[in-house]
């Protein structure tokens, strides 16, 4: 509990430091929204020449696209300490040792080591696309769906977060960035922005059985939007998102702790 309070304090200090030049910050956020958002704009403009993609309308694509963007942006803001670009140098420059020398939980210290408020841009962009989707389609909202939506977002956040944690852990062993992991995190973000049944079988298999992105995006959306699933999976699969995310995060943390123990026995 004490460590959590320290974490919040550290985050608050970083936010204050990042908001030192508010005009510059706002400009960066806005430019982020525009640039990242253009990717969807390009898709939407292109889409007007076609009727649907895999039987899904633009609004339906925007539904999963916006969710994935919002979740990834949220994750990127919170888990930034585990981002290879931040954590790699931390290990290389020996700053990780500093964390071990403080009487505070190490994992929470890594969370607190970097909080990038700028990622708000991606969150806003995702939200905007999601809201846009709601203007295009009619979702039959039920109480359960309304409850499931935030659960789905949180699940996606921890799904992506697990990949970041795993990526950071690998730096204990290799100095090189394992970009193969980017395929799962950033690639995962990419495929989760579309109805995943449009991808060829190998890609689908990768994102079902290796990194279960399909259970975090496609199947929940199939349920929410009332789509038919040409892949023929049982209905309950749509509700596995929180279970999968929790399991992944648990595994990631175990790997992470294993990494720390190994770091302490073999040195840097």
């Amino acid at each position: 509990m004490r460590s959590v309070k320290l974490l919040l304090r550290l985050i608050r200090l970083q936010i204050r430091s990042q908001l030192q030049y508010p005009a510059s910050f706002i400009l960066e956020v806005i430019s982020g929204v525009i640039i990242m958002g253009f990717y969807f704009v390009a898709f939407a403009l292109t889409f007007s020449r076609f009727d649907n993609i895999g039987g899904w309308s633009l609004g339906e694509v925007a539904f999963v696209w916006g969710l994935a963007e919002f979740s990834f942006g949220t994750m990127d803001m919170i888990f930034s300490g585990f981002d290879y670009d931040a954590f790699g140098p931390m290990i290389r420059k020996g700053q990780f040792d500093q964390l071990l020398l403080r009487p505070v939980n190490i994992t929470l210290q890594v969370f607190g080591s970097r909080f990038v408020l700028r990622r708000l841009g991606k969150m806003i962009e995702g939200l905007a696309i999601f809201i846009y989707s709601l203007t295009l389609i009619q979702v039959e909202w039920t109480a359960f769906k309304l409850l499931y939506l935030p659960v789905l977002v949180v699940s996606q956040v921890f799904f992506f977060g697990s990949l970041f944690v795993i990526g950071a852990t690998t730096t204990f062993w290799t100095m090189e960035r394992l970009e193969i992991l980017n395929i799962f995190s950033y690639g995962g973000n990419e495929v989760m922005s579309y109805p995943m049944h449009i991808f060829p079988r190998p890609i689908r298999m990768l994102f079902t059985y290796v990194v279960p992105a399909i259970l975090l995006s496609y199947y929940p959306a199939v349920y929410m939007l009332g789509k038919t699933d040409p892949l023929g999976a049982p209905a309950f699969v749509s509700f596995l998102a929180p279970v999968v995310a929790a399991a992944m995060f648990w595994l990631a943390l175990r790997f992470w702790h294993f990494g720390i123990r190994n770091y302490q026995s073999s040195g840097s």
């Binding site: 898709f43 292109t46 889409f47 076609f50 993609i53 895999g54 090189e176 960035r177 394992l178 970009e179 193969i180 980017n182 395929i183 950033y186 690639g187 990419e190 495929v191 579309y194 449009i198 991808f199 060829p200 890609i203």
Partner: peptide, 20 residues
């Protein structure tokens, strides 16, 4: 690894265009 990542994304983009 850059090659691997770019290749994956090439597959993603191609898939989206084919589906469209």
């Amino acid at each position: 690894s850059g090659l691997a990542t770019n290749l994956m994304f090439a597959f993603f983009r191609a898939s989206v265009l084919i589906a469209l």
